[in-house]
């Protein structure tokens, strides 16, 4: 591409002008649906606005944030979200590795296997929540029937109503739904690995387990970190699963469910916006931490 600055010819300048023209519609739409609403949310978080009176409100300074800090339900939501994120992303990474390694092996019918693995990913989150909600039903669910039959549990469990079981159930559904995404990203990384290293390892008679930990894992680490970051950011803002499986129950409530409950159900836009703003801050921190600590690199505009 041609040099920048004063040496740019008339043609390059014309190209640049048209480039901005091409960008403009996209930028306007993004500003309207992302930039502006986010700014409004941050602004509302310092007011006592309600959904009914969005244009008549008083500024209340940091009051909303101070209330938030003192609300044990909010801290429960933070804890639920963090626990959900750490456990489900870890499980998805481990299972995703297993599935990806299986898909990477040369076996007959690999296309079919990959298609089967893709099914949970294609199913809408709401639908998978309902499907599992029915399977975990306390009276007529297949999970209770199977576990009773195998003698694992002595009496039927109220999976989604029991405060100790509800979050594990939500995590289990998320693992089912999101492992395919993880597996596919890992598989893509596996398929780009140079084969000659594996030849050499086999000739030297290195044990497969050692090959995995010494060769495969370090080589796919960059791709793995990107996938983990994507899933982590996704998990931190989880909403659908909790809302459909357990409603606004406190035992599973995530930060997004908490914020939406105040914003829409209680119509307390000021307070709900404060919660939403904190969620954005937490996500931003997680991203920065992942990029610096995990050395995740995004290849942008080389």
């Amino acid at each position: 591409m041609s040099g920048a600055g004063a040496r740019a010819s008339g043609l390059t300048r014309q190209r640049r002008r048209s480039a901005w023209l091409f960008l403009l519609p996209m930028l306007v739409v993004l500003a309207a649906v992302a930039g502006w609403p986010l700014a409004r949310t941050v602004y509302y978080s310092f007011t006592d606005a309600t959904l009914a009176t969005l244009d008549a409100y008083a500024r209340v300074g940091l009051d909303n944030y101070l209330w938030l800090m003192r609300d044990p339900v909010w801290w429960r939501a933070v804890w639920n979200t963090v626990l959900f994120t750490v456990v489900s992303v870890s499980l998805e990474t481990a299972l995703g590795l297993v599935v990806a390694l299986t898909l990477n092996a040369h076996l007959p019918g690999r296309g079919l296997l990959r298609a089967a693995v893709l099914i949970p990913w294609a199913i809408p989150t709401v639908v998978s929540a309902q499907m599992w909600g029915w399977m975990f039903h306390d009276l007529y669910g297949v999970v209770n029937a199977a576990l009773l039959g195998l003698g694992v549990i002595a009496q039927p469990q109220a999976w989604t109503a029991d405060p100790h079981l509800a979050l594990p159930v939500v995590i289990a559904v998320d693992v089912w739904k999101s492992t395919p995404f993880m597996a596919l990203l890992i598989l893509a990384a596996l398929q780009m690995l140079p084969q000659d290293i594996y030849e050499a390892a086999r000739v030297d008679g290195v044990h497969p387990v050692k090959v995995f930990f010494r060769i495969t894992l370090p080589l796919i680490r960059p791709a793995l970190m990107v996938a983990v970051l994507f899933r982590t950011l996704d998990a931190l803002r989880v909403f659908d699963l909790m809302y459909v499986l357990t409603g606004n129950s406190r035992s599973t409530m995530s930060m997004s469910v908490y914020a939406r409950q105040y914003l829409i159900d209680f119509q307390d836009v000021g307070y709900g916006s404060a919660a939403a703003t904190l969620l954005v801050l937490i996500l931003a921190l997680a991203t920065v931490a992942a990029i610096t600590l995990g050395r995740v690199r995004f290849e942008a505009g080389r």
Binding site: A4, A34, R40, G272
Partner: peptide, 30 residues
Amino acid sequence: VAFRGRTLLLLVVLGVSMFPQVAVLSGLFE
């Protein structure tokens, strides 16, 4: 097209994809 701020724009676009939906709810509602 090579122009100044291209990388920054791409990163902003990527950043938007990380927004939690609930964070734009009140502004979008308005």
